[in-house]
């Protein structure tokens, strides 16, 4: 299975001829999405005068980061051949629990954020337990936990948001460093770390191995259940991180946060070349996928596309990306 990850990181063509470069580029699972992203960015720069403004670019990047973080966790699950439908709800529940840590318990933001991520990890591990230990279908398990998490959010909040979350907490969602919003920095750092883990560590290679062929992985001595348990836990943790960053951005723990993130996260991963069957895909692809979705949504607003048409257009773009993917594999 390891040959499939050669394109994700650290691959260098031995002979750097242009033909070799094109061949490598076509092999790379994220080549389609990169082309689509470049085309879209160029088109929008020409069509929408505000698109390239510094404010707009930082808004787009920040918007990509929230769904993007959820998508990173989802990518790991997909690579392993699973799926996690509960990520959006886990983000919402974690954001509410985190907001309570900040307000009701008065815990310092720098402690509340990692604590909330641990809470998200625990939520994910619940999924992991059912999938890995009891060998239940992840689709069904996470469909159930999606309802439970979303329901608990309403039980705790009665639908009312928790705010304000305090001056000190705002830096995570509203702050910026050298003009780059903090959520974007966190998203990209998380992506870099994950890309490294996938390409260079045994844990990462084992994820691909489990996704490629579960039985074979088990036969060669990989402890499959540990991988599955941990990966679902990580998906919950990334969802919690995204939920908290969004709460910080809005200065409110909002019960309905994350409702729309599930489809976005799956779409970003698939656009980036991650296979629903597992074993194939990359973190770089997912990052590009999240960016493409955010740029597309931004363009739709800037170009005044009617709300009635919007979902049609998003669906068509996904289709086009899949067609480009088809070209790549032929």
């Amino acid at each position: 299975m390891t040959h499939e990850i050669t394109g994700t990181a650290g691959s260098r063509p031995r002979r750097a001829g242009p033909a070799e470069f094109v061949r490598r580029f076509r092999q790379w699972e994220a080549s389609g999405i990169l082309i689509a992203l470049i085309v879209l960015v160029v088109a929008l720069s020409l069509a929408a005068p505000n698109f390239l403004s510094q404010y707009n670019l930082s808004v787009v990047a920040r918007q990509a980061s929230f769904v993007g973080l959820v998508a990173l966790g989802q990518t790991l699950v997909l690579l392993m051949g699973g799926i996690d439908l509960s990520v959006g709800a886990a983000a919402g529940l974690s954001a509410i629990v985190g907001s309570l840590l900040l307000t009701a318990l008065g815990i310092h933001p720098y402690l509340a954020l990692p604590l909330t991520m641990l809470f998200g990890l625990a939520l994910g591990c619940i999924n992991g337990f059912f999938v890995a230990k009891l060998r239940l279908n992840p689709f069904i398990v996470t469909l159930a936990s999606w309802e439970v998490f979303a329901g608990l959010t309403l039980v705790i909040t009665k639908g009312a948001p928790i705010r304000p979350l305090g001056e000190d907490f705002r830096v995570f969602g509203q702050g910026s460093l050298f003009g780059v919003p903090v959520p974007v920095l966190i998203f990209l750092s998380a992506g870099l770390i994950l890309a490294y883990v996938l390409a260079r560590t045994r844990f990462g290679r084992n994820i691909y191995a489990v996704g490629g062929n579960r039985e074979a992985a088990s036969l060669v001595g990989i402890r499959v259940w540990r991988i599955e348990f941990l990966v679902f836990g990580l998906a919950g943790m990334f969802a919690a991180l995204a939920g908290m960053l969004y709460a910080s951005r809005m200065d409110a723990g909002q019960p309905s946060v994350g409702e729309g993130w599930l489809m976005g996260a799956i779409t970003a991963a698939i656009l980036g070349g991650t296979s629903l069957r597992g074993g194939q895909g990359s973190i770089v692809g997912t990052i590009l996928g999240a960016l493409l979705m955010a740029v597309l949504a931004n363009g739709i607003v800037l170009l005044n596309v009617s709300g009635y048409w919007e979902r049609v257009i998003i669906g068509l773009v996904v289709l086009i990306a899949i067609l480009v993917d088809l070209w790549r594999r032929r």
């Binding site: 404010y55 707009n56 808004v59 929230f66 809005m250 607003v301 800037l302």
Partner: peptide, 17 residues
């Protein structure tokens, strides 16, 4: 297209730009 808080906020944010 749907009553989704993040989508709604994203639109407000984009329109500020």
């Amino acid at each position: 297209p749907q009553a989704d808080v993040s989508d709604h906020n994203r639109r407000i944010e984009t329109n500020i730009g």
